[in-house]
Design a protein around this nucleic acid. Structure first.
Lengths: 348, 348
DNA sequence: TTGAAAGCGATACCAT
DNA sequence: ATGGTATCGCTTTCAA
């Protein structure tokens, strides 16, 4: 039963006007007399006409959609971002579509190029470890872009990030104040700009504490098993770490399972923190302390910058850095453990 | 520095061939002599030419992208599906894009129509509560579609679902065998086809158990607070329920927090189960028992059906129903609680 | 095989 | 304001 969908020409014929007039009614940019406008609208209604975006896009060299590119949706932080953009981006008729870049520079380039080939009006990107080629393609295309979460170190795009260095610095300081001296940061991708900033923050805090404190960076490997075995050997060392910070909720989950299987008690023997706020943070025992990233704010701000840039390609470039919030729960305790109410259990 | 991107015409000129020849090289459908083919390829290389999908799509009335439409990404089940499709769909040059439908029939229609206007080659949809208009639009468009997760009750699209009725039936049976007599199913959307099937499964199991057993359906409302207050009054009743089943991980998290704030001990006083397998299922105490949906299989099967239909629009319609897996962990216990190893604690 | 030319469905400019 | 028409970049006959 499917016949060819009606075109603007069909509408024009039925309304007895020129195609240009129909186009003008559609886009509401050029004035059209009331009588014709009504005729056109009636015809559109009758025919069930809908615009062919491909044709429009071909002509206009731009289609009304905005791409949001994130690595995965399994990391709660990213899925929160995606949901937040959907919430915020209903504006002005832009349609939002997501593509997944999978931590892989090649796939990132591929997916972003696909979006560019569709001549999207704008694009929001969480860059991968090695985004150079993607960024170059983006710059060459002239498409409005807002980079989020991971600073590129360049000054060619608007950016909305949050203060990873500062957050990690604060976290480390608090751990140190609680008596922790060997702090481990578990990362997935050491080369990521955010990872680097976190490492820097950690090192700074440790340096501030003097010789007694040390920072360790552990790369977690691709799966839980690998992480577990790394932790096992780490905990067997002479002077094992007493505090762990996981880079995201996935690693946090691996870490907690690993600690349990290794019979390392937390927060008794070690303290645990994570970046991101998964829904289970306060469901587990002990409740997980986290660095809560301002996803809603990031999305709102990024969208705002994107709109601005889509309206005026040459508005000055802005880099916005937001603050994260540290939420301390039971998974962090002092080290060595302090005396409890029961005097017999006193240690130290 | 951005000049107009090269077109097929530029390539043709540089290679001194007709545009049609370039097109033939590009699509590899019509044979082209080796010498010209090489010239064309060299020219493409030199110019950095890339096809304009909008123009191609306009001509072909179809673009090489496949849309995946899910409600949210915050429900682990959906984000797992999205990731699985990305994994599976790298095939044959189709690009996958996601759109979010937000549990809202209007937004669903809107987003799906946006995809249709781009003349996507195919579409995978988790339908909303009231997908009628969307389905109609889809059917009219003639676009290959595979429905997943929620059966439509129609026979116009391929479907890949899993056996919600059977899974719920089995779960209820096991709970009943453990002595539970009042079983609560907490749902978000009572009208959803999957919800209905689960309710049916629950009712059947309860009926089988005779008069002693009862099924309760609780609608959880939009947030945790609402659910908590509903549960509070429920637990105050004369004959409070002893088993809860949550429809997804979000509700499971709400439920667990609610029970804790109400000081209801589980699995002591009540048992808890959930549909879906969030990463935290075995991190919480007690470890959460779940119905694990076969996301990978669903994605694989759906993709296969979609490819089949994209290649042959009139292949017979197939409905595939997969089985879920029930994973029992500590959150489910017998009721009333059985004697423990310690004889003094024996109850009943 | 290859080249020339007719659209695909819309926009935008140019007269009127 | 309105109608007519060139044009966007590509695919696809149709002849040669």
């Amino acid at each position: 039963m499917k016949r060819a969908p009606p075109t603007i020409l069909d509408v024009a014929k039925l309304a007895k006007v020129a195609v240009g007039t129909v186009s003008n009614v559609l886009n509401g940019k050029v004035p059209v007399s009331d009588s014709r406008r009504r005729r056109v609208q009636k015809a559109i209604e009758k025919l069930g006409y809908t615009q062919n975006i491909l044709a429009t896009g071909l002509r206009r060299r731009r289609t009304p959609m905005v791409g949001v590119c994130v690595p995965h949706t399994s990391v709660a932080y990213f899925s929160a971002l995606v949901d937040a953009f959907e919430e915020v981006g209903a504006d002005r008729g832009y349609k939002i579509i997501q593509v997944l870049t999978r931590l892989d520079p090649a796939q990132e380039l591929d997916r972003v190029q696909a979006l560019l080939h569709y001549h999207v009006a704008g694009l929001i990107l969480v860059p991968s470890i090695q985004p150079d080629r993607t960024l170059k393609a983006l710059a060459r295309s002239g498409t409005p872009v807002v980079i989020i979460d991971r600073p590129t170190g360049t000054n060619i795009f608007d950016e909305v990030t949050f203060d990873n260095r500062g957050a990690m610095f604060d976290v480390a300081r608090r751990l140190i104040a609680l008596g922790h001296r060997r702090i481990v940061l578990i990362v997935q991708q050491p080369k990521l700009s955010t990872t680097r900033l976190r490492i820097r923050g950690l090192r700074e805090a440790v340096a501030e504490a003097g010789d007694s404190a040390a920072a360790l960076i552990v790369q977690c490997g691709p799966d839980e098993i690998t992480l577990t075995s790394r932790l096992a050997s780490l905990m067997r060392e002479a002077n094992p770490p007493t505090a762990f910070v996981a880079a995201n909720n996935t690693i946090a989950a691996w870490l907690m399972r690993a600690l349990r299987s290794l019979k390392v008690d937390f927060p008794g023997d070690v303290s645990v923190m994570a970046f991101g706020e998964p829904e289970w943070a306060d469901l587990v025992t002990p409740r997980l302390s986290v660095v809560r990233q301002p996803t809603g704010e990031i999305a709102r701000m990024a969208w705002e910058l994107l709109i601005r840039r889509m309206n005026d390609e040459k508005t000055p470039i802005r880099h916005v850095e937001l603050k994260a919030e540290i939420i301390m729960r039971d998974s962090v305790a002092s080290n060595p453990p302090r005396a409890t109410a029961d005097p017999k259990v006193t240690r130290r």
